[in-house]
Every structure is written in C-alpha cells, then in structure tokens.
Write a protein that binds this DNA or RNA. Structure first.
Length: 218
DNA sequence: AAAGAGTCCAACCGCGACCAG
DNA sequence: CCTGGTCGCGGTTGGACTCTT
C-alpha cells in the first residue's frame, strides 16, 4: 500500500523523535511513535492472546509500553480490515447524521462505519465536518424563513414512512450488529451504507418514535 | 525560496465504568 | 459494600505536512 509507505517514512522520523524523548524521560515506558518492530510484536502477541488483557499483552510482547498504548495502537492502526483515509460522501453523510443523533460519541458512530476507528472519525469531524456543520447551520438559519412551510409538509410524510421503516430496521439492526463489529465484509458494508439512510436518519422530525429508536440504538 | 499559517492525525491524558477479590 | 486494577471513551496535544503569501 502506498499510504503505508508514506506512513512508514513518517514513522521513522517520529521514531527518532520518540527515542530522543525517551532518553530524557524519567519513566522507562516507551512513548511516542510506534516502530515497525513494536507493531509486529504487538500483532503477534495479540494473535496468541487475543485483543484483551492489554497489560498482559504489553508484558508478553516485551514492549516497553503501557497496556493502554497497546490497545490504542491495535484499535486505531493494527486491527485487521481497517480503512484509512478517503472517507466517502456516503460515509461523511452518515457521520453527520449519526453525530446529530448521538453527539460526540465517536465509538458508537465508528461502530456504524465498518473499518473506521473512533479516532479517525473524531479527527475527521474536528478537521472537516465541524466547520461544514457550522456553515450549514448558518445557511439553514437564513433559509428557515423561506422554506418553513415546505419542510412541514415533508415532515408529515416522514412520520408515515417512519412507522414502516422502523419495523424493517429493527430486524436489520440485529444483522448489522454482527457485520459492523468486524468490518471485514466490503459488500455487506456497502449495503449498510447505501440503505435508505435519508429516511432512516431523517431528523427533521423529532417525534417520540425517533426518540424511542434512539434509546434502542444506544 | 523562505517563512508563517493552517490542517491533519497519531498518540497521550484524564476520567468514569466495570469487575474481581 | 469497599478497594484497587483494568479498560474504554472523549478531549487534547504536538509535530509533520501542506498551503499561502
């Protein structure tokens, strides 16, 4: 992967910086950028012990890292089927909608986006989407006066459709739960993202049905 | 070409939840 | 019930990279 090559050269630099920092540091624990060797050791150890008991893994891998650091590295970088960069429009839209629904609960949002990590989504939000949302908010305020009546009509339709959708989604919900937890199946993922999300996450109506669904979702 | 500003992202930190003893 | 250890989450930071002047 080209991205990975870029990454490794970056990491070489960071590694050096990290090493320099560690020399100064009082604690023995390694900090900063992970080296390829550390990554490899961590991955091997997790293969044996599984991704749990992070403190044990850190020790068993012979890494001078705290368990927390190992967990983070695994979750955000080494875990299989992780997608990096190139967040699609559909994914972006889903993030926006989920954020509207859930707020800054990145792990939950990430759970709906196969292959994406909470950290990546959080970063993406902070660097791209927060501004976008801000601008949209301004625009919406301006347009609010003009389109109020039109939205009201759409809202009524949404309520009718929602009742049907909800039942379907409850079934799908269970299936998705299994699929999204591993993020491996590309085809399945596409299906999840492209399902009728506009209706599914239509927040223009914040009726009791929506709230019911939210609590279920969370 | 150089400097400064802005952006991106990996990693760290602190806190709360959970669990075993 | 209490306590200490561990885990997971969200917020924040720091440094590299990119863009602009």
């Amino acid at each position: 992967m080209a991205a990975m090559n870029d990454q490794s050269s970056k990491e070489e630099v960071r590694e050096a910086i990290g090493a320099a920092k560690n020399q100064k540091g009082k604690k023995e624990v390694n900090r900063g950028a992970w080296t390829d060797e550390e990554d490899q050791r961590l991955a091997e150890t997790i293969e044996i012990f599984g991704p749990k008991k992070w403190k044990t893994i850190a020790v068993k891998a012979g890494l001078n890292r705290c368990g927390k650091s190992c967990r983070l590295r695994w979750m955000n970088y080494l875990r299989p089927n992780i997608k990096r960069g190139n967040i699609s429009d559909q994914e972006e839209d889903l993030i926006l909608r989920l954020h509207k629904l859930l707020g800054n609960r990145w792990s939950l949002i990430a759970g709906r986006l196969p292959g994406r990590t909470d950290n990546e989504i959080k970063n993406y939000w902070n660097s791209h989407l927060s501004k976008k949302v801000e601008e949209q908010g301004k625009n919406r305020q301006e347009e609010e006066g003009h389109h109020g009546r039109r939205r009201k009509r759409r809202k009524m339709n949404a309520v009718e459709v929602k009742e049907e959708k909800r039942e379907e989604e409850e079934e799908e919900e269970e299936e998705e739960e299994e699929n999204t937890s591993f993020a491996g199946d590309e085809i399945e993922e596409e299906r999840i993202i492209t399902c009728d999300l506009d209706d599914f996450f239509d927040f223009s109506n914040e009726d009791p049905l929506t709230l019911e669904w939210i609590s279920k979702f969370i």
